[in-house]
Design a protein around this nucleic acid. Structure first.
Lengths: 199, 199
DNA sequence: CTTCATTTTTGACACGATGTCGAGAAAGCA
DNA sequence: TGCTTTCTCGACATCGTGTCAAAAATGAAG
């Protein structure tokens, strides 16, 4: 057995950085290979294909992101939790220079696009899975808030609405790049959900 | 002067159909040339580049879409108008077999992605322009509703919120492909906006 | 220590995409 | 009829993905 000359996790990190900055289709394996100091062929040997490499890199990101999310949703009043949720979401979109947007939303629109080509379906599921998990976390937060009398609506419907807004924010971020606008929409959404008339 | 052997508008229509089904990066000029019965070189001669062709095809679509939108927003109570707005939006996402999603959102995430490459910026503006125009139409509708006592919130903020939700719906359509879910979110959004406590 | 088996690395190759270029073809006009 | 202008067409350069076989490096067995 000959040992691998590069670190698996390092490559995933470097690759995801490129994918995030330039999009999946806009990033070539040559770019990643150069950045990682590895031959292109070695990447194929280790990961199989560009999309397989992307999927592994994305799963790595999704795990980290969910951890941060749980932390943000875990403290204070319901309003504080939702504010922290939107803060984290928007900060994530606006991280990097220039801002890199939302990798999940970009990936969904970029790869979930082509007609049934096999791996695209696998990618679609990876993205959808993260969105579902985020929705579940928000729903749990709302349910807890309802038990404490901080919320009187339908947690499932409200969570879906909130997550839909965050996906919309990801799109508007690309369209306008106006962070203040995103924060305004977020705060307006929290008001709508929490001030709703008896449900 | 030798006359062109193909119809300009026909090619735009055929090209946009391909771009809509397979994404911009997923569609090759050879595909379009084959479908349109034209040589690839002729497309370069007539349109300059793939992205220039896409932009022209997209502008053609955007014009038609805005016309349909004005029609949908022009009749009945405010609730009826907003319902028609979401209906048109979702029907548009779900048109085709398989459903083609939202071309604007897909285009934004696909092209507005790469770092300052010139034409990508032009594309971004085309997408952003349609989103802005849609927002303006919704805002006008809400303002008219406010004058008739059907709405007591801030039209600008509410319009932005509604359009943000439609962008989110475009993303969820790709993630889940569940049309009933999209319609539920839409109806919930209308309730939130119209039932809001005095603002 | 030598040999072997296994895995990684590496470079060459096939293929398809974008975009350029120049030669040839087809109209309008003098 | 001949000239000019534009369009069409095929060849080419370049870059992307993905495959393959040969070479290199390591661990294990004799």
């Amino acid at each position: 057995m000959r040992p691998r000359e590069f670190d698996h996790d390092d490559v995933l990190r470097i690759a995801f950085d490129q994918f995030w900055r330039k999009g999946v289709r806009g990033t070539s394996l040559s770019d990643i290979a150069r950045d990682a100091g590895v031959q292109r062929g070695s990447l194929y040997n280790a990961f199989g294909s560009k999309e397989a490499l992307f999927l592994q890199a994305y799963e790595r990101y999704a795990g980290n992101y969910l951890l941060a999310l749980q932390k943000a949703l875990g403290m204070g009043s319901l309003r504080k939790r939702l504010t922290a949720f939107f803060d984290l979401t928007i900060s994530n979109f606006r991280s990097g220079a220039p801002p890199r947007g939302c990798p999940t939303t970009r990936g969904l629109m970029e790869l979930g696009a082509a007609e049934g080509e096999g791996l695209d379906e696998e990618a679609r599921q990876a993205f959808a899975s993260l969105v579902s998990r985020i929705t579940a976390l928000v729903q749990d937060t709302l349910s807890a808030g309802a038990r404490r009398g901080e919320f009187n609506g339908n947690p499932a419907a409200a969570a879906l609405h909130i997550v839909t807004v965050t996906r919309g924010l990801a799109v508007l971020e690309r369209a306008y790049g106006d962070e203040a606008q995103l924060r305004k929409i977020a705060s307006h959404t929290i008001d709508l959900v929490l001030d709703k008339k008896g449900g």
